[in-house]
């Protein structure tokens, strides 16, 4: 434990990158988190959710309504990372279509990406630009999406 605490010191100045994990999309294609989202200066918003998480769904519903407006101002893509395990995973596709969401959906079935980013609670939003994590939003309450937009504009 002492060694761990010593190591802890190294971490404070970390400029964190996304972990090198590949996840399936809804069509069964393998997508690499580091290599497939690396367009220069493009903002990637990774929103972690699950079909059973009501605040997550509220957030994605709200963002879906304003996404077109956001895209007029910013070069950005929202990726909804479903952390559902095999219990609820089959519900993702009909729910996403039923809601008419336009996000890229990734399946983090055994929570490899969630674990690598030390995410405890969802909703959880990670903003990546040029391969570096530039902003994190832990949780969602009504209004978080407009605050997030202000933040994205400042990047």
């Amino acid at each position: 434990m002492t060694i761990l605490i010593c190591l802890f010191g190294f971490f404070l100045n970390a400029q964190t990158q996304m972990p090198n994990v590949s996840l399936n999309d809804l069509e069964g294609k393998k997508i690499s988190i580091t290599n497939d989202f690396n367009e220069k200066d493009k903002i990637y918003v990774f929103s972690f959710w699950a079909t059973w998480c009501t605040p997550c769904i509220n957030e994605l519903d709200e963002m879906n309504d304003v996404l077109e407006d956001w895209k007029k101002e910013l070069n950005l893509e929202v990726i909804a990372v479903a952390t559902d395990d095999s219990r609820t995973q089959k519900r993702i596709k009909p729910l996403v279509n039923g809601k008419g969401w336009e996000y890229k959906i990734l399946l983090d079935s055994n929570q490899d990406l969630k674990r690598a980013l030390s995410i405890v609670n969802i909703p959880y939003t990670v903003v990546v630009k040029n391969g570096v994590i530039v902003h994190i939003q832990n949780g969602y309450v009504p209004g978080s999406e407009s605050e997030l937009y202000q933040k994205l504009k400042s990047l």
Binding site: P94, V96, N97, G100
Partner: peptide, 15 residues
Amino acid sequence: FNMGYSKKGFGVDGT
């Protein structure tokens, strides 16, 4: 066994 059908605005799924 699982099957489903979904399009924009509608989804059905059975397991």
